[in-house]
Amino acid sequence: MLKVENLYHAFNRRTILEDINFSVEKGQLCGLFGPNGSGKTTLFQCCLGFIRPDKGMIRFLDKDIRKLTIRETAQHVAYVPQHHTQPFPFQVEEMVLMGRTPHMRGFYKPAKKDQAAARTAMERVGISNLAREPFDILSGGQQQLVLIARAIAQGTDMIFLDEPTSALDFRNQTLVWKALRQIADQGTGILACSHDPNHVAWFCDTTVVLGSPGLVAKGDPSKVFSQQLMDEIYKGACEVSHAMDLKIILPSGLTRHPAEAAGC
C-alpha cells in the first residue's frame, strides 16, 4: 500500500535519511521507531508530501506521491499530529467532520453522508458521548481519540500518526494503541511513530527502525528486537526481556530501590 524506495534526504548538508526501503501493507500496523535525531519526523513528512525528498520514490497504491495533488494525497492518507492546539473552541463533532474535507466539493458544505461518516468514526473510537463537547477542554487522551476519529472519518487507505501517545498517561496510551490495533485489523494501513520500543513490540505487526543515518532493521518486532539491535541504537541503555510471549524492553542495570535493598 505504502512503498518507500531508495529514499535519501539531507538537511543543511547533513544526511538524515539514507537508502530507506520499506513498505506497509493493508491491515498492517507499522511502528516507526528510532532514537532522537534519527530522522523519524523527516521520513514521516516525506511520506505525507510535506517535504520533498532529495532522491527516491514514495508510492501509495502504486501512485507516485509527487504526481498527486494536495487534495488527492488527502484522499489516500490521513495524518494525526502529535499535539494539536486549537485556538477556537470547536466541538468534537465539528472537528471530526473536518476530516471529510477532501471528499467535499464546491462550497464545502458537509453532506448527509459526511455527517454519517463522522458519526461512525466517533462510534468506532468510542467518543460519541463527547460529540457536543468543545475540543479544548478534553483531556489529552480524549483529544488524541478525537484526532484519530477525524482520520477515520477521512476514509483513507492509510493513517499516519506522529507519536500518538507521547503525552498520555499509561491507561490512555493503552487505549489509543488498542484503538489503532482495531482500526488496522479492519483493513487500514497504519504508520505510527513512537519513542517507546515496548509499544512497538506489544502492538505492531511490523516495524521500521531508523538509526543515523538510515535503516537499521525492519520486519516483525518480535523477531527484529534483539539485544544486539537495542545495543546498537541505545548504546547499551536497555535489555530485552520476556513477559508472557511478548518482548519487553527494560532499562539495563535495573535493581530494586536501594533504600529497601539496604533493609531500612
Partner: peptide, 20 residues
Amino acid sequence: GWKLNILSMGDKEARALGID
C-alpha cells in the same frame, strides 16, 4: 468559511486535510 475552519488547524493539518 469551511476552508478557514481547516486553516485554523495549522498549515500541516490543513495540507493533510486536502486544503493548500
